[in-house]
């Protein structure tokens, strides 16, 4: 074979072989390691649980699931990156999405469509928020609290603007109609909790795992949980939804959820296999042993139901942000 011919063939191979590789990849997915993007800095709740899920998912898929932290602008930086991911990588990049995705849609200028640009795989974990007051608070029951909050000046803490805790507060305020309710934002729960324990603010919709030790030790009193069903950790505590029907809270349900999403260009093959794998992880003993340690429950919504939930949340927060003039 002439040297020139050899070179041309080699060049041809260099161009076409990778393409053949791509088509082969889709058939026997996963052919390489999968990256799980965490839209928060290393060390937070999302990070801890993502690393645990990545670990279990890796065992299930037989490849390593690498956790990559990409924080910024309330999760929207990482989400924008996923929306732009190349078709080649789309099957190997998933994101641990959270309420930041739905709240961010109305707080930040987005370069992507928060619904159409993604495939919604599975809501993995739900962390309930709880309505807590300091131990020395005069409010003993949810009923007393709501009645007072409608007329008296009250304040609530949150770990920051746009957090699920802040949005729960805003939603609550708008539903019961409490003109004198003030939001006091902190930077992170570590700063917000002392103000709550000391009674500088009247209440908060904190994540259950964060305040669980303080509830147990009697430093905080829990008046209600924000999920649809009562929490298995606090079975005797009513839901806001059930206890607040008379106050227009009959459809009040918020939680910090964590679910896997991929880019819209993810292949059906990868999408289907990921869904099966995540479901297997969620059935596993290891996962179910780990959940209660975080005060969490397994997410229910999968595929289209997950997508519908995200859509509903986006609309709910958009209406709320519009009504409260947040970010203007």
């Amino acid at each position: 074979m002439k040297p020139l011919m050899k070179m041309l063939m080699a060049a041809g191979a260099a161009v076409f072989l990778p393409l053949m590789g791509t088509s082969a990849q889709a058939a026997d997915w996963p052919a390489k390691n999968v990256t799980l993007v965490v839209p928060y800095a290393a060390g937070g709740t999302t990070d801890i649980l993502s690393r645990r899920v990545a670990d279990l998912l890796g065992t299930e898929l037989g490849v390593t699931v690498i956790v990559e932290n990409r924080p910024g602008a309330g999760t929207t930086v990482a989400t924008a990156q996923l929306a732009r991911v190349s078709k080649r990588d789309a099957d190997y990049r998933v994101l641990m999405s959270s309420p930041g995705h739905t709240v961010g849609a109305s707080l930040y200028p987005l370069s992507y469509d928060p619904v159409k640009d993604f495939r919604f795989i599975q809501n993995v974990i739900d962390i309930p928020n709880v309505l807590v007051v300091p131990a020395k608070s005069k409010y003993q029951t949810f009923e007393e609290f709501v009645a007072a909050a409608k007329t008296e000046a009250t304040s609530y803490s949150s770990p920051g603007i746009g957090s699920s805790i802040h949005m729960s507060g805003e939603l609550f305020k708008s539903k019961i109609g409490a003109p004198n309710m003030t939001h006091v934002p902190f930077r992170g729960s570590g700063e917000a909790l002392p103000a709550l324990l000391a009674g500088d603010v009247d209440f908060s919709f904190e994540n259950l795992p964060t305040v669980y030790p303080m509830i147990k030790s009697g430093q905080l009193r829990v008046l209600a949980v924000t999920t649809n069903e009562p929490s298995p950790f606090l079975p005797e505590v009513p839901t806001v939804k059930a206890a607040g029907v008379a106050h227009g809270l009959g459809d009040f349900a918020t939680s910090a959820w964590f679910g896997l999403i991929g880019s819209a260009s993810m292949s059906d093959e990868a999408y289907g296999k990921l869904q099966v794998a995540v479901n297997n992880v969620m059935q596993s003993q290891a996962f179910n042993d780990f959940l209660p340690q975080l005060g969490a429950i397994a997410g229910k919504e999968s595929g289209d139901a997950f997508k519908a939930m995200v859509e509903r949340d986006i609309n709910q927060w958009a209406a709320l942000v519009e009504a409260t003039g947040l970010g203007e």
């Binding site: 800095a41 290393a42 060390g43 937070g44 709740t45 801890i48 645990r52 992170g188 729960s189 570590g190 909790l193 002392p194 324990l197 795992p209 669980y212 030790p213 303080m214 147990k216 030790s217 430093q219 780990f290 340690q293 975080l294």
Partner: peptide, 27 residues
């Protein structure tokens, strides 16, 4: 108190919880 004063202690709090321990007076 069960309150993390900085990011590192927040992670250590996570480690406590992963092991089924909740820092605070109860601990």
């Amino acid at each position: 108190l069960g309150i993390p004063g900085d990011v590192i202690t927040a992670i250590i709090l996570g480690a406590f919880m992963i092991h089924g321990l909740t820092p605070g007076p109860i601990l």
